[in-house]
Computed example of a mutant assay.
Amino acid sequence: MMLQKSKVDLDNNNRARLALIDPRQLTRMSLLALLTAASPGTRRLSDFTIMPYANPNEFVSDYLERPWSVGMIVLNIGAASVCEDDIHNAILRLRHELPDIPIVILSDDDELCNVLTAFRNGVRGYILSSFDPPKVIQALRLVVSGGTFIPDSTLEEIAEKTAGLFKEDSHDYAPIGAAVFDSFTPRQMEVLQLLREGKSNKFIAYELGMKECTVKTHVRKIMSKLKATNRTHAVFLLSQMTNEKN
């Protein structure tokens, strides 16, 4: 895990100031209570002073009107995806207006493509809502101290997919059964055809009138049915089956 230098801004009690952004009042207040509660097994308060906001615009406006010291921004997106326009634009605006403040995403979604998209957009941490509270607090401590937090499951999936690249050279792939091919939905078949032509997710989304995130979901399900390690592997398996049918 790579550490990056970051300035830690503290309040008068030596606690990092954290801007918590969540449009849902219930989860926002629940996280506020969690992060300001006494640390497990101790009587001291949490490391963080929480400033809750309903949306990024509210936070940015408040900050620009009366700047205050903030060490980190936590954006809780719930079941939404970082690929959705409003989430994507929120991250970009925060990065543009406050480039020196690390951003952490709190999400229900552990899809590899979405986690990687978040980091490509400049976030410094991606925390899953399935984590237990002590792990969430440890992850936030890591980011506010200058680190980058990536879920273990993401690192394991990257390692598996990377290992799969080395298997391609052997071309030792099991043939696809007809039942697998027949299990694809009509929409997946449309995606398959464009996938075989080497089209990008963005092109497929445009061609079929879908969101790019929806295309990624179809591609992921296709690869799962084919037991493919990556897109290249999937196309190879499909070509192999077509040749066998001919």
Results as ranks from 00 to 15, higher is better:
residue 227 K to G: 14
residue 236 F to V: 09
residue 15 R to W: 07
residue 16 A to H: 00
residue 156 E to Q: 14
residue 78 G to W: 00
residue 61 S to N: 11
residue 226 L to G: 11
residue 21 I to K: 11
residue 225 K to R: 15
residue 28 R to Y: 07
residue 128 L to V: 05
residue 21 I to P: 02
residue 194 L to K: 11
residue 82 V to D: 08
residue 146 G to C: 05
residue 117 T to Q: 06
residue 71 G to H: 01
residue 73 I to G: 10
residue 165 L to A: 01
residue 244 E to H: 13
residue 61 S to G: 10
residue 106 L to A: 04
residue 137 I to W: 00
residue 114 N to V: 00
residue 9 D to K: 12
residue 147 G to C: 07
residue 86 D to G: 06
residue 84 E to Y: 11
residue 153 S to N: 09
residue 172 D to T: 09
residue 14 N to F: 12
residue 176 I to Q: 15
residue 45 L to D: 07
residue 195 L to R: 12
residue 210 M to C: 05
residue 81 S to C: 11
residue 212 E to V: 12
residue 142 L to T: 13
residue 166 F to Q: 11
residue 88 H to V: 11
residue 96 H to T: 06
residue 195 L to I: 11
residue 135 K to I: 03
residue 20 L to S: 01
residue 185 T to D: 13
residue 43 R to K: 06
residue 138 Q to L: 12
residue 163 A to H: 06
residue 166 F to S: 12
residue 220 R to F: 11
residue 46 S to P: 00
residue 23 P to F: 00
residue 117 T to V: 08
residue 54 A to W: 04
residue 199 K to D: 06
residue 83 C to K: 12
residue 45 L to E: 12
residue 8 V to Q: 02
residue 178 A to S: 13
residue 116 L to V: 13
residue 142 L to G: 00
residue 106 L to W: 00
residue 177 G to N: 15
residue 58 E to L: 02
residue 96 H to V: 03
residue 175 P to R: 14
residue 190 E to G: 09
residue 194 L to P: 02
residue 125 G to F: 13
residue 200 S to M: 04
residue 213 C to E: 10
residue 239 S to Q: 15
residue 234 A to L: 10
residue 151 P to Q: 07
residue 4 Q to F: 14
residue 199 K to Q: 10
residue 115 V to D: 06
residue 30 S to N: 02
residue 136 V to Y: 00
residue 4 Q to L: 15
residue 235 V to F: 08
residue 182 D to Y: 04
residue 115 V to C: 08
residue 21 I to D: 05
residue 161 K to D: 04
residue 18 L to S: 02
residue 186 P to D: 15
residue 138 Q to P: 01
residue 98 L to G: 02
residue 129 S to G: 07
residue 10 L to M: 15
residue 29 M to C: 03
residue 91 I to H: 01
residue 175 P to L: 08
residue 30 S to R: 07
residue 210 M to S: 00
residue 146 G to T: 01
residue 10 L to P: 10
residue 35 L to R: 00
residue 95 R to E: 07
residue 149 F to R: 02
residue 110 D to Y: 05
residue 199 K to I: 03
residue 13 N to E: 12
residue 96 H to P: 02
residue 178 A to E: 15
